[in-house]
Design a protein around this nucleic acid. Structure first.
Lengths: 183, 183
DNA sequence: GCGATCATATATCATCTCGATATATGCTGC
DNA sequence: GCAGCATATATCGAGATGATATATGATCGC
């Protein structure tokens, strides 16, 4: 999935600046698709404008640089619909946490406990955010994907709350076997 | 998490060539951390060797280019342990599938049904693979992360099997409202 | 009231990474 | 017999990241 598709998806919900598009991709309901940085968003928006899939209007602001507000065109909406029909790339779950967990006996109980707490806090925050979006939205597709996310994260959190003691035990046993310079 | 950490993690399990490292990251139990391509793996291995964190031995093969087999050193193991102690980056779930699902009314029932089937097949395959790894491994950390993954994917699959009819309904209603040139 | 930090907003750039491709060969299925 | 795939190393153009520069209002502690 390309940055182009992402920008069109967000603009399909309403006008936005490059900055706002980036925020949507980082936080909120659009953060489960793909990420993108300014270095790819701004050039993409320029290309979309050249291809007439979006239009820009500049809103001058006294003192600071003008906001460039992008809107999707009918042509853009049609292009987006065609992009949706292409077979989507496989979903991915990428977890630095699991790498640490895998090597619990090397990492030690201190590192493991921190990583577990961090991960659980993270999940709780995400669940909060998604619950809020769920209450607000009237769009059925959005509601579906938010409920998908909630189901997934609540399950993850429950697993960690139920099983994390096993990981701590592995880390503690590892420390007995490998009594390295404690930190 | 850097490619460096990934390479050390895999070599910490046993010697490997660049090709094998890439395979581990793409398939198997290491595929839940981060991905990396040859274009980053080969330069990283060269740097690791220069830093004395790994060693190489060339195994000549009659007719074809020699295998370069990399091994982690004691220094490398210590560096890996230090890298594990660094606060891990947050986990991410990236889903092109959910983008299509969000816009079910635009994508239409045909596209949605395909995407759903594709996603479910994908999950079943992953569950198969993880179940096999679970049976084989004797390493407690590996068992933990494999069970984490299994728990997550079984839950995902159950949600889709239970709820996907809702998504199809959204797509079908959308088609009535927007009777575009059918494909 | 004043400095620090943060949020808004655009934009660039060195560095890194990806995806495709080149090269070379054995094995397997049809 | 040969097309296609797996093994294996390596490179390269195109594209993406993460950091940084610029500019300013808002907020908050002290």
């Amino acid at each position: 999935m390309s940055v182009k598709t992402l920008c069109l998806a967000i603009l399909n919900c309403g006008d936005a600046t490059g900055y706002e598009i980036r925020k949507h991709l980082t936080e909120g309901k659009f953060s489960y698709f793909e990420d993108a940085s300014y270095g790819s968003i701004y050039p993409t928006l320029a290309r979309l404008e050249a291809d007439r899939l979006v239009t820009v209007r500049e809103e001058p602001q006294p003192g600071r640089p003008a906001r460039k507000i992008y809107s999707i065109t009918d042509e853009g909406r049609e292009a987006f619909r065609r992009l949706l029909a292409e077979p989507p790339a496989p979903d991915t779950f990428r977890s630095p946490f699991l790498l640490v967990a895998m090597w619990a006996e090397l990492a030690g109980p201190h590192v493991i406990k921190n990583a577990l707490e961090e991960r659980k806090t993270n999940l709780r925050e995400e669940i909060e955010k998604l619950s809020a979006i769920r209450e607000e939205t009237g769009h059925p597709g959005t509601r579906f994907i938010v409920e998908y996310g909630l189901n997934c994260m609540r399950n993850d959190l429950a697993f960690l709350e139920r099983e994390s003691h096993r990981l701590v035990a592995i880390a503690e046993e590892g420390e007995e076997v490998l009594p390295q310079a404690a930190e």
